[in-house]
Write a protein that binds this DNA or RNA. Structure first.
Lengths: 196, 196
DNA sequence: CCTACCGATCGGTAGG
DNA sequence: CCTACCGATCGGTAGG
C-alpha cells in the first residue's frame, strides 16, 4: 500500500520535472511560470508544491542530475586503452552520447544554469571546471608527447566544448540525432581538420 | 537647438540600450525588469518609455543590429582572393571579429533571441539561414574541388558555428580577447585539426 | 490534490 | 523626466 502511494507520487514528480524541462527549453526558465507548468501537467498550480519545493528546485535537479551524467560518462577515461588521440576521441563520443540521450535536459543545463541561486551557481561552476580539467589533461599530455599541435590549451578546450555542447541544437523534429555519426564527424574535424 | 535636444535624447537612448545589454547578459532578458533597467540607468521606470517603446523593442534592436553587423562583415567574401580554404579562413576571422567587437551584444544575440515576438522570430531565423548559407557555399565548393574532406556539410557547418559563436564566453574580466589569436587557433583546428 | 488567497512585482500608461 | 497608478501575473502558503 505504502509502496503504491509512493510510486504514484514519484511518477507525478517525474512527470513534473519532465514537463518543466520541455517548457524551460521552449520559453526559458524565467519566462516559464508555475501556472504554465501546472497547466501542462494538468493540475492546479498549488498542487505542484506537493511534489517539488520550489521552481528553482526543479532547475537545480535538472542541472545537477546532468552534471552527474557527464561525470560518470568519462569517469574511467584514464583507464581507456590508446594514446591521447584515442582517449580524446572516446571522451568526445561519451560526452556527445550524454547530450543526445538527454536532449531536453541538456538544453536546460547549458542555457539556464545561470538562473540557479548563488550557492548552487558556485557549486555548478566548480563542477564544470573539474570536468573540463579531465579533457585538459588529455590535451596537455598529448602535446607533451607530440601527438597534438602545441596550441593554447584553454582556447582548444574551449573550441572542443563549444562544438560538442551545441549539438542539442542540431535536432530537427522527426530527425533523431545519430550519436555515432555526429561524434565521429566532430572528432574528425577536431583531430584531423577539414583539409584533405 | 533642435540638434542639441535630439543629441541628448539619442545619447540617453544609446545609454539605455547599452545598459540593457549588460543586464540581459547577466540575468537574461526575462529576468531583467524595466525597473532594474531604470535603476541602472538612473531614471524612473516610466521615463524609459520616452526613449524606447517597449522592453521587447530593445531586444529587437540588439538582435537585428547584430545581424546587420554579421552580414556586412562577410558581404564581399566571394570577392576575396584564394580558394575555399582561404575564403573560409577569412570568413571565420571576420565573424569572430564581429563577436569580439560586440561582446555584450553578441551574448544577448545568441542567448536571448528566442524571446522575440513570433514575427521577429521568423525574420531572425531566416536571416540566420541566409547567413549560414554563405559559409555552406564555401564548404561545398571546397568539397567539390577536393580541398575539403567530404563530410556531412550540415554537421560541419554546425561545428564551425558552434566553435565560433561561443567565444563570447571566453572573456575573463581584465583579459581582453585577441581576435587574431582566437581566430587563428579556431581556423587551425577547423582546417588542420589537432593532430600533428 | 483543490479552493482561496497572500504580498510582491511585472510591463506599461495617463497626465503633467 | 517625474508622480501616480493600472490590471495582470508572479512564486508560494494556509487550510482542508
Amino acid at each position: 500500500m505504502d509502496t503504491v502511494i509512493r510510486e504514484k507520487t514519484s511518477a507525478r514528480k517525474a512527470q513534473i520535472v519532465e514537463t518543466a524541462q520541455q517548457l524551460f527549453r521552449e520559453k526559458g526558465y524565467s519566462a516559464t511560470s508555475m501556472r504554465d507548468l501546472a497547466k501542462a501537467v494538468g493540475i492546479e498550480p498549488a498542487s505542484l508544491y506537493n511534489h517539488i519545493s520550489s521552481k528553482e528546485a526543479i532547475l537545480q535537479h535538472i542541472c545537477f542530475h546532468m552534471a552527474e551524467e557527464f561525470f560518470s560518462a568519462i569517469e574511467d577515461i584514464h583507464l581507456q586503452p590508446g594514446g591521447p588521440q584515442e582517449k580524446l576521441r572516446i571522451a568526445v563520443h561519451r560526452h556527445i552520447g550524454v547530450i543526445v540521450n538527454n536532449l531536453e535536459a541538456s538544453n536546460v543545463f547549458f542555457n539556464e544554469w545561470r538562473n540557479l541561486g548563488e550557492e548552487d551557481l558556485q557549486k555548478f561552476r566548480s563542477l564544470r571546471i573539474n570536468y573540463e580539467y579531465k579533457f585538459k589533461e588529455i590535451l596537455q599530455s598529448g602535446m607533451e608527447t607530440g601527438a597534438f599541435k602545441p596550441v593554447d590549451v584553454r582556447i582548444a578546450i574551449f573550441t572542443i566544448f563549444s562544438a560538442m555542447n551545441a549539438i542539442y541544437d542540431l535536432e530537427k523534429p522527426g530527425v533523431p540525432i545519430e550519436t555515432d555519426e555526429v561524434a565521429s564527424i566532430i572528432s574528425t574535424i577536431i583531430l584531423n581538420g577539414l583539409n584533405v
